[in-house]
Design a protein around this nucleic acid. Structure first.
Length: 402
DNA sequence: GTCAATTCACATGAAAGAGACCACGGTCTAGTG
DNA sequence: CTAGACCGTGGTCTCTTTCATGTGAATTGACGA
């Protein structure tokens, strides 16, 4: 019985018409043939990197711009083109790309260097060695290769925030210590103010060249969406106005093209599931809500237990009080909750940090205010949309009990 | 009424500890010739 | 004699605690008009 049903599901799925022609176009690692509205930046980067083809060391580049402005894509694209030529001409050159934000991969000094060494063909244990050893190993492979290296450090601000800037200092200094191979750095950051927080020595050597990626405006996002959707969807699938609406959503918060593409993709999936042959404007609204919902639920359920307890405290406080909540109150509720569930109680100091982490995640809004004589605290309110709140609360309840 | 001092309730920082990982080198053990 | 099991040491990483210091405006209280 069950098997038969399953068979049906697959059968139906196979026969079903989809609005998608090639879904891969929407994957985040997809590199299109051309990158609209970024010709300027691509050219600039190419010019800076070009000396590498003659065996010289290109200047270090620092790139910044908000999320979803095509930084990573453009850099990957240009370096890819560069490599094609280098390979054809047999020029020794190597491009290494590392995303510093990926947990457990490159978000500490040790792991970053280990990751780089691994990319060069020298895998290192994930922990256990002195950091100095890792540097030595890295430099050894570097020297063995005897070629120019271009090092792309994506989301570099995350790394520096966590571990300080002496990683970058060490990396920029590698060239001085050895002459067999040269290393150029490309730093990519979402945070525009990031450079200012760096040590002046690091700053001057890291940003020998700078490139800014401005946000896309609504029209540019539209043309990006059009370009992709022609490849991704079957013909005549898009109802007029859909792209415009998508673009408008994305342009509303700082021109994030990635968000716009995701919105369009999810809208397509919803249309598919509803057996609609076209993507309607309503699907966009639905998609936006689904993305919100998935994000919240994902964050909430993957959080450690202590975090869930804190969040639950905040939510239940808000449902009684309906507005401003303060750290102290959250802590009180949290403590009694811990007693009830027989959980180890953390200090208020830690809870304070946890709350501000939720703030960073966009789950709550926590603003530091001063109540004058009555002290200084965070004013907390929940940012979870009303429609999802009950479900979130229930999920938390289940998780806490377990 | 005005103004500076006080005071509250935390925020924010720094340092350090606990416990989970892990690599490495040395020692012990058992199996092999 | 040698491979593998089994320590102890020393390292990283994450999550916390402890201790210390900072802070913005309502309140207080002294002062002068």
């Amino acid at each position: 019985m069950v098997v038969k049903e399953f068979g049906d599901i697959f059968e139906v799925f196979l026969r079903k018409e989809s609005v998608f022609f090639d879904k891969r176009v929407f994957q985040s690692n997809y590199t299109p043939e051309t990158i609209p509205h970024r010709e300027e930046q691509a050219k600039q980067i190419a010019n800076i990197l070009a000396p590498a083809l003659k065996g010289d060391k290109p200047s270090n580049i620092f790139i910044y711009g908000k999320t979803g402005t095509g930084k990573t894509l453009t850099v990957k694209y240009t370096t890819q083109k560069l490599m094609e030529i280098a390979e054809r001409e047999k020029i020794p050159l190597k491009v290494l790309y590392v995303n510093c934000k990926l947990k457990r991969s490159a978000d500490t000094e040790y792991r970053l260097i280990a990751q780089l060494a691994a990319e060069l063909g020298k895998p290192l244990p994930p922990t256990g060695l002195p950091t100095e050893e890792v540097y030595k190993a890295f430099i050894r492979v570097l020297n063995k290769n005897k070629q120019n290296h271009i090092l792309i450090l994506d989301e570099i601000d995350q790394l520096v925030n966590k571990t300080g800037d002496n990683v970058l200092y060490n990396l920029t200094r590698i060239n001085e210590e050895q002459t067999e191979s040269q290393v150029s750095l490309i730093g990519i950051s979402n945070d525009v103010l990031f450079v200012d927080s760096l040590d002046p020595r690091v700053r001057s050597s890291l940003s020998e060249e700078e490139t800014v990626f401005p946000p896309y405006n609504a029209l540019q996002i539209q043309s990006i969406l059009k370009q992709r959707s022609e490849l991704a969807f079957n013909k005549e699938v898009l109802q007029p106005g859909v792209i415009e609406k998508c673009a408008a959503y994305a342009a509303r918060d700082h021109g994030d093209a990635r968000r716009a593409l995701e919105l369009l993709r999810v809208a397509g999936e919803i249309a598919d599931r509803g057996n609609s042959k076209k993507i309607m404007i309503e699907h966009i609204d639905e998609a936006e809500e689904k993305i919100d919902r998935d994000r919240v639920i994902d964050i909430v359920t993957t959080q450690p237990k202590q975090y869930q307890l804190v969040l639950y405290s905040i939510i239940s406080l808000q449902s009684i009080r309906n507005n401003k909540i303060f750290t102290g109150e959250v802590y009180e509720v949290y403590k009694s909750l811990c007693n009830k569930t027989k959980t180890y109680v953390l200090t208020q100091r830690r809870i304070s940090d946890i709350i501000s982490e939720f703030d960073m995640l966009g789950i709550v809004n926590a603003k530091v205010i001063s109540k004058g004589r009555y002290g200084r605290t965070r004013e907390i309110s929940i940012e979870i949309p009303q429609t999802i709140l009950p479900k979130t609360k229930k999920l938390l309840e289940e998780n806490i009990k377990a």
